[in-house]
Design a protein around this nucleic acid. Structure first.
Lengths: 249, 249
DNA sequence: CAGTGGTCTAGACCACCTC
DNA sequence: AGGTGGTCTAGACCACTGA
């Protein structure tokens, strides 16, 4: 590599270190689908050669992307595109634990699914035009034979063309796995807002609790690449035998 | 530095990279109080010389500790021991936000504070002998003139010798600031468990809500160096105008 | 065995802060 | 000007994987 002159070329206001530019390039390849979820990406030395930088610089870019849960490093094997298929990553987006520490296997049961027009609030949250076509899904998550979470989801219909009860019933993978595999929509991060509310008739029935019981309401906006919001979700958690677990670092 | 033989000496089962050993050494100095909260630690090159390793290795150790929020790097100035005095870090342990996004200044009002003997549950949670002396504190956190959080805290009395209402009233810094400054107990991380409950008479009165209203119950165990539990806390959050905010990465 | 990521070093230079 | 952390490089060697 020829050393002088150095890369950035702009001294201060728009300065971005080389490794971050490399990160953006890898990110663009990810977004473009050059490597699919679960695939290995090229080795560090190969990427270094491709981008004309040292291996250490590629390494630092990948370090950040691994910290962001976009890539997974496996010593001796390679670096892989993160995927929601991995059962270990199931609880990354479901911060639920049993009070006695023993969580039986979960089962997701879809209740209804239909298309509608986005109201003002959904449109604002998902960055759509008011009146855009959306999908609404209701489902219940069981642990063992106990209903624990009653979810209502809002999705931009454009991104999930053939989404339906039939598709859901034909796939028992996690929802984010399905989104990623069938529609190429990968959830990267999410914001959640938690409140305590009283169970209304619908959620009380879905969770087999008395109307008026306290429920934990978890509102989530999930984002894909480029911080684009692609899911809005309201989950009612029955917290008699379970709780929402969070670690403050 | 003499290169061969390399440091670790043990091939596989207890292998720990050099930078992690350096991290442990710096951690020990932190724990021993060699540098207090807010102080600058020695420069990277100085530490490299002290430990007989390269600057890059010290750098990687400090990188991890900065990621753990134990140290704060400031380009051009140095690396500093993290502190709870920093008002920006106040919300690191209080994931609270207003529904309309506008949070007025907060005010913590202590209600009562007394000493007691640890019951089985407190003893287990804090790693104490049953019957050990503990401190119990009740307080209310206001935002503007609205009571939002009613807290009950359990502390090992041994670590907070002269803790009392008087001490609280004489200091208007945050609780963790006080713990760190006055007692040398630095909170590093915490586990929280969230549930929805109905307001009992005590918490309803403290938060000016109707008895039976849904409240968000946040149970926290906070840890200091060495993952030693030093605080157990039950907070009742009124979530009519506020919510608990969490980011899933 | 070859290939991958993981560690460690040494040295150069840049960006930022303070005096 | 001199110190700090921040970036980038080049090369060596280690640890792990799988053929």
């Amino acid at each position: 590599m020829n050393r002088p002159p150095p890369r950035p070329a702009s001294p201060s206001p728009t300065f971005s270190p080389l490794y971050r530019q490399i990160k953006d390039l890898i990110l663009a390849s990810l977004e473009a689908g050059e490597w699919g979820p679960g695939d290995a990406i090229p080795s560090e030395s190969e990427l270094a050669q491709r981008f004309g930088v040292s291996q250490g610089t590629v390494r630092k870019a990948i370090d950040e992307m691994a910290a962001d849960n976009l890539l997974v490093r496996r010593q001796g094997k390679g670096t892989f595109v993160a995927t929601h298929n991995d059962p270990r990553s199931f609880f990354r987006f479901l911060r639920l634990a049993a009070n006695d520490g023993d969580l039986p296997p979960s089962r997701s049961v879809p209740l209804e699914c239909w298309r509608a027009r986005a109201g003002a609030d959904v449109a604002r949250t998902l960055g759509l035009e008011p009146g855009a076509s959306i999908i609404i899904l209701r489902r219940v998550l069981y642990f063992g034979d106990k209903p624990v979470v009653f979810d209502e989801l809002y999705l931009p219909a454009e991104l999930f063309p053939d989404f339906s009860m039939d598709v859901l019933n034909a796939n028992d993978e996690s929802l984010y796995s399905l989104f990623e595999g069938r529609y190429g929509v990968r959830m990267i991060r999410a914001d959640e807002r938690l409140r305590a509310v009283s169970a209304d008739r619908v959620s009380a029935a879905a969770l087999s609790v008395a109307e008026g019981s306290p429920l934990l309401l978890v509102e989530r906006v999930a984002f894909t690449y480029g911080d684009k919001p692609v899911e809005w979700r309201r989950g009612f958690y029955s917290t008699e035998n379970h709780h929402y677990h969070n670690e403050l670092g």
